[in-house]
Amino acid sequence: MAHISENIPLIDIRGVTKVYGASGAQTHALRGVDFVIHPGEFAAIIGQSGSGKSTLMNIIGFLDTVTDGEYHFAGQDVTSFSDEELALIRNKEIGFVFQSFNLLPRTTAVDNVRMPLAYAGVPEIEQIQRAKDILTMVGLKDRLTHMPNQLSGGQQQRVAIARALINNPSLILADEPTGNLDSQSGKDVMKIFDDLNKEGHTVILVTHEKNIAAHSNRVIEVLDGSIVSDDKRK
């Protein structure tokens, strides 16, 4: 669907606002945000809690819709996409990594990782093979049939990363990916993001930690629903 090219921005957001709640008790989570992200970038969105950075990430990842403004993804206007179209674009183009891993309990690593492929209509044998390959890639070759509760936090987050990568998305979105990890596991996980970016993947991180943001080559700071700084370092 989306044709990824260096010339067309992957993400092009203009004048996006997000208002929660009914009139009278409204919260303005985003007050007119513009920014562009090109393929291959490694960007960090930082800000305090309540700044609107998570809302911004949810809108980028099609988990939430805008109140006003325009969103072009790989040149396509997605503002008016239907529920089923958004589901398809999340499946094909976005890989999510969450702070709390969000793995299915009582479900093996392989079954967790191959879930997006089931919704993509990939045959089951291929699903399992690809899940095994990608788990090997993130260093969990000997944890294929483990349940989440048999894995450490760092291992669980690597399973989640494998799940995010399995459908070859054009964008990896990570929301505080190291927030629930000890520092060593956090470093291991960040190394994976670094490597993925070097291989050409577009990565957007949401974090409030400066040292995590330092892995990126662009830091976008959000405050009270607006972008207050956009610092490209490369």
Binding site: G61, L63, D83, E84, A87, L88, R90, N91, K92, F96, N102, L104, M115, P116, Y119, A120, R163, N167
Partner: peptide, 12 residues
């Protein structure tokens, strides 16, 4: 929510 995030539509 997770299933929706990885691409499950309403119908699925």
């Amino acid at each position: 929510g997770l299933r929706k995030a990885v691409g499950a539509g309403k119908r699925r």
